[in-house]
Amino acid sequence: MDMIVCIKQIPDPETPASAFKVDEAAKKVIPAQGTQPVVSPFDLQAAEAALRVKEQLGSGTIHVLSVGPAGAAQAIKQVLAMGADDGFLISGPGLDDPDAYATAQVIAAAAKKIGNVDAIFMGRQAADWDEGVVPMGVAELLGWPQVTVAKAVTAADGRLRVERVLQDGFETVEVITPAVVTISNELGDPRYPKLQQIMMAGRKPLAQWTAADLGLDAGQLQSRMELERLYVPVVESQVEVIEGESPAEMAANLARRLREARII
């Protein structure tokens, strides 16, 4: 089975809140000093899901694909070290910060160019903007079925058996291939790479494509979404200590105070 794993390099979601700053005028996030971008965690789990399918079948190819700045090559190497076979970095004009629609266009075009793909695995959403719409766009553009928020994926007679996470339980579905599957954190931790694999990762093929290589023009990459305002919400909290001689009196004072505040 030939699979594509899509990954996105994002600002570290574990950056301490105190270090998170935005430039409101430029409507951009200011990268925190000393923190390196990381692979969106759901995407690593998508890679893990694909690797498990490959291990289950004992054969197959896993392509890692990322749309974004040239630095995303590092992110691709990380997944190659986990055991993927080759990488595709699609970067260049118009692709440093594409919106969801443009990203879906690029991924769909790349999947066609790679050819013979049976499944595309993606994280349920990127952990920076948390929009979670690219997978739908890709499935729509390719005309493939999609299964979202999966916690387990296995291959079964040329199909994929996918366990989905629902709000009140789980559901198992079977989907024909080719298909798009998005993976949720319930899948479990991505594997820790072996040293041999880390060393081999540098030697695995990594293709660099531009939008033009995929036959996409600037118009197709035009952002369809306009960012109106970007700001860090101000959270205010006030603390008031309720006094009293005895616990009973404190409770009475608390109740009086809450009534004054029209909370009860």
Partner: peptide, 24 residues
């Protein structure tokens, strides 16, 4: 331990989820 190791790899320190920065 894997989380600590991956944190060292990605963030240069083992304290995953700390609210502090190097200069705090």
């Amino acid at each position: 331990a894997q989380q600590a190791l991956m944190n060292i790899e990605q963030r240069g320190h083992p304290w995953r989820g700390t609210a502090l920065q190097r200069t705090s």
